[in-house]
Amino acid sequence: MKARAFDYMRPKCVQEALEAFVRADGDASYIAGGQSLVPALALRLQAPGLLIDIARLDELRGLSVAGGHLRIGATTRHCEILGSDLVREHAPLLARAAPFVAHPAIRNKGTFGGSLALADPASEFPAMALALDAIIEIASVEGSRRVGAGDFFIDLYETALQPGEIITAVYVPLASAKTRTAFDELARRRGDYAIVGAGIDAEMQGGFVERMRIAFLSVGSTPVRVGAVEAALTGRQLTPQAIRQAQDVLGTELDPVGDEHTPPEMRRHLARVLLGRLLGRLEANV
């Protein structure tokens, strides 16, 4: 249960980090919060020859509002998301999801960018990035590019990131006066990974849904948007009947995975229950 020997460096800027990765010929790994990487090294699931510590790079820090977006620096820690007034005001869905991410001590080190880069389908923030239609800014030695969350999560632990690329920031569209959000998950114990979870980011006017994005976690190899359910609710009021119909649509749209504790049918059922609860909360505006 000890990591294989490796070299360690703390670059002064993103460019230096990117170049170090290239020089290591791929036998390197970035480390941010380390809350997923360190256990993987201890279990020797990974054994890179070089760790490049990006946790203290100023360029990757901070929360700020600019150009209609909330910019979340990649090394923003989970506890900072949880405690931030900017997040509460401009990205309320993230504020709702943050208490569900791991345990307090892990939130003190784990980072937003690390969570997205890892792309664990049971993690809260990747799914919320999807529900928020966030934009992910990625740096490589060739320059910088932006990828929408919808194109970012490709498969189990697989993202649009190429080897050596670094997530520098994530941009979330600002909430408006019409925004309503809801998040919840079902887990065995507080802080455990969810059996199923979901977040909704909607715009409502006069009781009618103008726009709705719903993303589920822990139902497949990536976080999952449910477009058919979203379409079924758009333009409607969230009456008990509309909610029941949405649950039925979800039952056919969602094709969840099973595991040793949770057969797919159970997960589908729990997802329907969860959707009903969340839509009820949106309607009640709580």
Binding site: G34, V38, P39, I106, N108, K109
Partner: peptide
């Protein structure tokens, strides 16, 4: 702030 001493390297 509380953190896990097993989840970080001393160099960090």
């Amino acid at each position: 702030r509380p953190v896990h001493a097993c989840l970080m390297f001393a160099v960090q």
